[in-house]
């Protein structure tokens, strides 16, 4: 049984007068201890998907359809109480801008203890402190952080605290939503390497959400490329990011500098995201695609299978067609 099985998930933001389709028929499968990267530019729906998995979408302005099956339970439509039992124990997260992931007017330890007591209501202060010290050791922080205020920490330290928090109950799945984006590249590199080691040690699966392809390359075995709410390509990282098939993935990779090989000028992708409040009958990338043909604008491409896990949603790719 898969750890996480996302089937035909649609997430809509209900705005006044029009609906915005932020996730359009998303399918993702993850096994235990898998590491999956979700890449895409801002507005591609990747963070919305993460919030959907975590059950944190604002209910009054969003609606979600489909199935998110986590450890055999469908998370969509799960009652608040049942969800609360899963939260943090099985499913935890590290959020964007780690500097803001702690309340500025409470000590780090106090906040850790408050989260610990959500699931261990009878834990004493000294038990909480012990738990905190253990977690800090795992992420390479000194125990004095427990009595510090968040503003007394550096960006890298705050990030490590956020990661330590997510490991608290040895969850089966951790979602890292742009977790290292705010850090400088050196700290980012260090933390990413540590994350890979931690993940193996703690035997947990992770979803890394980022717009930075190199983050996925260093931390994830599998990758999903999202564009305008749809998955355009997915598969093993060393295949998809080395020989990308979808024109969007190709464009995305050309927007990053390569360390090795020929010196090439960087190219972005001309154009911008389509208006997601309009229904797009064809391929979402067609208006910006350099190879688009008539059919791309009229018909939605289904996934082409290239090998066991590699899927590409593009008419121009040869392979077995599969729904």
């Amino acid at each position: 049984m898969a750890l996480l099985d996302i089937r035909n998930v649609n997430i809509v933001y209900k705005m006044e007068g029009h609906d915005i389709l932020a996730c359009d028929d998303v399918n993702i499968t993850m096994e235990t201890q898998d590491s999956l990267g979700i890449v895409g530019e801002s507005g591609s729906g990747k963070s919305t998907l993460a919030m959907g998995i975590l059950g944190l979408l604002p209910t009054n302005i969003t609606s979600i359809a489909g199935e998110i099956i986590f450890k055999g339970t469908n998370l969509i439509g799960l009652s608040r109480e049942d969800y609360a039992k899963l939260r943090w124990k099985e499913l935890s997260a590290v959020f964007q801008k780690s500097m803001n992931s702690l309340s500025p007017v409470h000590k780090v330890g106090k906040q850790m203890a408050a989260i610990y007591r959500v699931h261990m209501p009878s834990a004493s202060d000294s038990e909480c402190r012990k738990m905190g010290y253990n977690l800090f050791e795992k992420v390479g922080l000194s125990s004095r952080v427990y009595d510090a205020y968040p503003h007394e920490l550096s960006g890298g330290m705050a990030q490590r605290v956020a990661i330590a928090l997510s490991l608290m109950f040895h969850p089966a799945l951790v979602i890292l939503d742009e977790a290292t984006t705010a850090l400088d590249v050196i700290t980012e590199g260090q933390i990413l390497r540590e994350l890979v080691t931690l993940q193996e040690k703690e035997k947990m699966a992770s979803i890394v959400i980022t717009h930075n392809v190199s983050v996925v390359a260093t931390t994830c075995k599998k990758v999903v490329v999202m564009y305008a709410g749809r998955i355009v390509e997915s598969g093993w990282t060393d295949q998809v990011l080395v020989t990308p098939k979808h024109p969007y993935t190709q464009g995305l990779l050309k927007s990053f500098p390569a360390f090795h090989g020929e010196r090439q000028s960087l190219r972005g992708i001309p154009g911008s995201l389509p208006d997601l409040s309009m229904r797009i009958p064809g391929c979402v990338f067609a208006p910006r695609c350099p190879h688009a043909v008539d059919r791309c604008h009229k018909e939605r491409p289904s996934d082409i299978l290239l090998g066991e896990h590699w899927r590409v949603a593009c008419f121009l790719v040869e392979g077995d067609e599969k729904q």
Binding site: A84, W88, A93, V118
Partner: peptide, 17 residues
């Protein structure tokens, strides 16, 4: 709307608390 509130929600803490 701060991130830390989202984090507390994700941790299963109830809204009142």
């Amino acid at each position: 709307s701060e991130d830390y509130i989202t984090l507390f929600r994700a941790s299963g803490m109830n809204e009142k608390q």
